[in-house]
Design a protein around this nucleic acid. Structure first.
Lengths: 338, 338
DNA sequence: CTAGAATATGGGAACGTTCCCATATCCGTC
DNA sequence: GACGGATATGGGAACGTTCCCATATTCTAG
């Protein structure tokens, strides 16, 4: 910077003003400075800048898992909004291990990021709460809701209700649920299923599962052993739904003629033509955008009370759902199909 | 830091030594400093540290596309190796647009990262070459090979040959190729196919395509119009292969009984039980590791000549390939099967 | 013309570290 | 019991910016 100032015949302070394109500098000088900078290949040092200005203009994003396409779409929303608001992003990954997440968070804080967005963190809420005392923090997760920390969550139970209501509207009565176990998202999705079934006066059938393809396959086997098969299955996520579909088809059932399937998350998987799965969609991009806005409000001090945002999912209907089979024996439906 | 020094009754320099856990400080003082730091909630400022030490210990990674699971696995390798070597990562995404990639790269350079890894960059090679003049740069890409810049690439043509040789070994003779068009990876994969077919004295059949599911579907339609169907198809990537499979099955062909399919990239897709696709696998994690090692060599100055690493793919065989149908009429194969 | 405001520029002290060198302390040795 | 050599500690100048305030210059109006 000194060199540039010398080459342009001005002071360091003026170069600084030009580089931050302040309006206070005359066109003449600005041009001279820019030319000198270009000739010398000068590039401002972001470290020094942040040190002197006591802010970095950086929002740290802690991703727990790069493999999950779910986060990629959230990142789209985050990136776009951050760019528009003039913030830079510092991504970091926790590799699905709490301990590594902690190190990664610590590293971000050492960089004095202005704010942090935690995507489905594994971190304990005490660590998160402590961090939030000194830095702007937003937790974006499917369910976690931490007192005194801003959050953006999805109304998972509502999503599950949408799925079940869709099946009921098609005429289904025997609707099973392959659940997601005790992972954070499992319980709310199960709860939504139970609530919608009860509201319609139907009997619930919950088959334990997890969020893996294999879990779906195993649960499908338990369904095949049942005396009277369900005509529809709501599965806790798309991957398990794909596993269940494969197993049911292998047993000779046609989808959706013999049995309808609904998934959750509307991942890339659901859109594949081999699978074409009706699925609950979360507004991922919007969630990312909301997270950025929320953290920026904190950074700028525009808002000081804690806020909990909740986004509503929608249902994307594909070829894996239709009316129940006539042989299932409900007169109304049979009539409806004729 | 001053506060910590005061609280521990030592000098700032000593605190600095303790924080970098230098062996020169006595156990007694070290303990006092650490206690004071903990009590005051002191966290070293990474910006100031880098500024003063003139190095950041950071390797920047420019990802062009978070959605592509391909990169997630490369990142696994990169993360693990970087951690082991004591480097931190600064991730950034280019969102598949050259101009945004350029901004992102510029931002990293402003942070004075010690080195940069570019994953399948869209950047022009002149920009990359210019960057490499001042900073350690490694380009990890499927094909791009830039003069004077270190690269890690996959031998894509070799992968294609593996696929074709596998089909030939199974007894196939009429083997078609749905290609990837002019995207960087299209030509080398096509070339590998052609080379392997010619080496076996077989006639090539190339159907133009792209890397999308739809492209695969359309190409499959062209195959269905052929007078004599091929008994096997090698598709330029998994996604297009899935599209082609769906269309061929819809036309009543069984896979692999009537027609065998091979994909490329061995993505998550290929492993799904609905698809179970034989596919060419790239050693992604190793590629990530290699990229980190290569850039570190440059940073440390252990090596000054340019190096081009090439990694060899392997073939993962699944249920989408088997012997050609007997009705295809090649005596030897029929005999072999009997 | 000139006072006073507005506009541009420059000077120097931060920012929170590391690094180099100087100094203080402690050993064992002859 | 002084002497060299380790071993620990401290002091102060970097690092490359921004920020605050002072000063120089230009403009405007009376």
């Amino acid at each position: 910077m000194d060199d540039v100032a010398r080459a342009a015949g001005v002071s360091r302070a003026l170069v600084s003003l030009v580089m931050r394109d302040s309006p206070l500098v005359s066109a003449d000088r600005r041009k001279r400075v820019l030319e000198a900078a270009a000739k010398l290949g000068y590039r401002p040092n972001a470290m020094a800048r942040s040190l002197a200005s006591r802010k970095t203009g950086i929002i740290g994003v802690l991703l727990n898992d790069l493999h999950n396409p779910f986060f990629a779409e959230i990142m789209d929303g985050i990136e776009e909004t951050a760019e528009r608001e003039g913030y830079r992003l510092l991504l970091s990954t926790g590799g699905r291990r709490e301990e590594r997440e902690e190190t990664a968070l610590e590293a971000m804080l050492e960089f004095r990021v202005d704010g942090v967005i935690l995507l489905s963190p594994l971190l304990s809420s005490s660590v998160i709460r402590r961090t939030a005392e000194t830095t702007a923090v937003v937790v974006l997760s499917r369910t976690m809701r931490i007192q005194d920390v801003d959050t953006v969550v999805t109304d998972e139970a509502f999503g599950a209700q949408l799925a079940v209501q869709h099946l009921i509207a098609l005429g289904h009565v025997r609707i099973a649920h392959i659940d997601g176990g005790e992972y954070p998202s499992g319980p709310p999705r199960r709860r939504g299923y139970e609530r919608a079934m009860k509201a319609a006066g139907l009997k619930t059938m919950v088959i334990p599962g997890d969020f893996s393809e294999n879990g779906g396959t195993r649960a499908a086997e338990r369904i095949l052993e049942m005396d009277e098969l369900p005509t529809a299955v709501f599965v806790a996520n798309d991957l398990a739904a794909a596993g269940a579909m494969a197993r049911l088809q292998e047993a000779g059932l046609r989808i959706p003629e013999d049995i309808s399937i609904v998934g959750f998350d509307n991942t890339f998987l659901a859109s594949l033509s081999q699978i074409s799965l009706t699925s609950v969609n979360q507004p991922r991009q919007d969630m990312g955008e909301l997270a950025v806005r929320t953290v920026i409000e904190r950074i700028r001090g525009t808002r000081t009370e804690t806020v909990h945002h909740m986004t509503a999912p929608t249902l994307v209907v594909r070829r894996s759902t239709s009316h129940p089979p006539i042989s299932a024996g409900w007169e109304e439906d049979a009539a409806g199909l004729a």
